[in-house]
């Protein structure tokens, strides 16, 4: 269950981390903390407060002993999406020019805005990866269910998580069959047609599979409900963590209030 789309993309958790700090926390605590952190950090604008905000999940990552390179690479994957926007921003924002490149003025306001967005985005996504990305996908589903997320949505998510690896295998098989027949992706209509047929076949097989699943589940008395069996309980560790975490947030807000006007 812990494998979303192949082993390479499995959760960041490692078996050795079982006894670590975060492992003792209730998944609900982790979900709630991430949400509060995200809302809080989005509201910050002082670069100092944001830099400290990035340091919070980084510290957690080190304390938890997560694979640093792997975690940071995932964070960097997100940066790939925004790098163009951030680079453009100084040139498209009005304000006093900091430097000129190819005849375009880069404004100081724009540079700070880009720094602000970059820090915010990275701080939040790193916190998500460290606190929730280390959960088993199934645990996340249970936590959301216990936090009163709509039951249907949670069921949908649990089914999705269950079948991602199955369909990934299906896809790998189809691709292997194509490779055996000498298919190499190129910039040709043939390539796009082949990929289209591949997707269509994947879809047909997914629907066929879902019919078999439903039949099998009905045989076992499925009446439209999944009964989530777990014994999630808040413990002392959750209380302590929440307290320290709130302390960190208060520090962040303090930094924002006292340094925000200075920059």
């Amino acid at each position: 269950m812990g494998h979303l789309a192949g082993s390479e993309r499995a959760t960041l958790n490692t078996a050795t981390a079982e006894s670590r700090l975060l492992q003792r926390l209730d998944p609900r605590t982790r979900v709630i903390c991430v949400l509060v952190f995200a809302v809080c950090v989005v509201a910050l604008s002082s670069p100092l407060a944001l830099a400290v905000a990035l340091a919070v999940p980084a510290t957690l990552m080190l304390v938890q002993g997560l694979p640093i390179g792997k975690t940071l690479r995932r964070m960097a994957a997100m940066d790939g999406f925004i790098i163009f926007m951030l680079v453009l921003l100084p040139f498209t924002t009005a304000g006093p020019a900091a430097f000129t490149l190819f005849g375009f003025d880069a404004s100081t306001t724009g540079i700070w805005k880009a720094v602000e967005i970059g820090l915010t985005a990275n701080a939040i996504i790193l916190m998500v990866l460290v606190l929730v990305g280390t959960l088993e996908p199934g645990q996340l589903g249970h936590a959301l269910a216990r936090l009163r997320a709509p039951e249907t949505l949670v069921h949908l998510m649990l089914f999705t998580v269950r079948y991602i690896s199955v369909l990934q295998e299906e896809y790998t098989r189809l691709r292997a069959a194509m490779k055996m027949r000498g298919f190499t992706p190129k910039n040709t209509l043939h390539t796009y047609r082949s990929f289209g047929y591949l997707v269509g076949m994947l879809l047909v097989r997914a629907v066929d599979r879902s019919e078999r699943i439903l039949d099998a589940m009905k045989c076992r008395g499925f009446d439209g409900r999944l009964y989530l069996l777990d014994d999630l309980r808040y413990s002392k560790a959750d209380f302590t963590f929440a307290l320290v975490f709130s302390g960190a947030l208060v520090v962040l807000i303090g930094l924002e209030v006292f340094s925000g006007s200075a920059v």
């Binding site: 789309a5 249907t152 069921h155 949908l156 998510m157 649990l158 089914f159 999705t160 998580v161 269950r162 079948y163 991602i164 199955v166 369909l167 990934q168 299906e170 896809y171 992706p185 190129k186 910039n187 390539t191 796009y192 990929f195 591949l198 997707v199 994947l202 879809l203 997914a206 629907v207 599979r209 879902s210 019919e211 699943i213 439903l214 589940m217 439209g224 409900r225």
Partner: peptide, 25 residues
């Protein structure tokens, strides 16, 4: 989405998740 169709929707959701990982030239 009636509860009985959730397995189908879940499998299709997984299907689109996998399809979104396909890179085409």
């Amino acid at each position: 989405l009636p509860l009985e169709r959730i397995p189908a929707a879940g499998v299709l959701s997984a299907c689109f998740f996998v399809a979104s990982l396909i890179h085409v030239p």
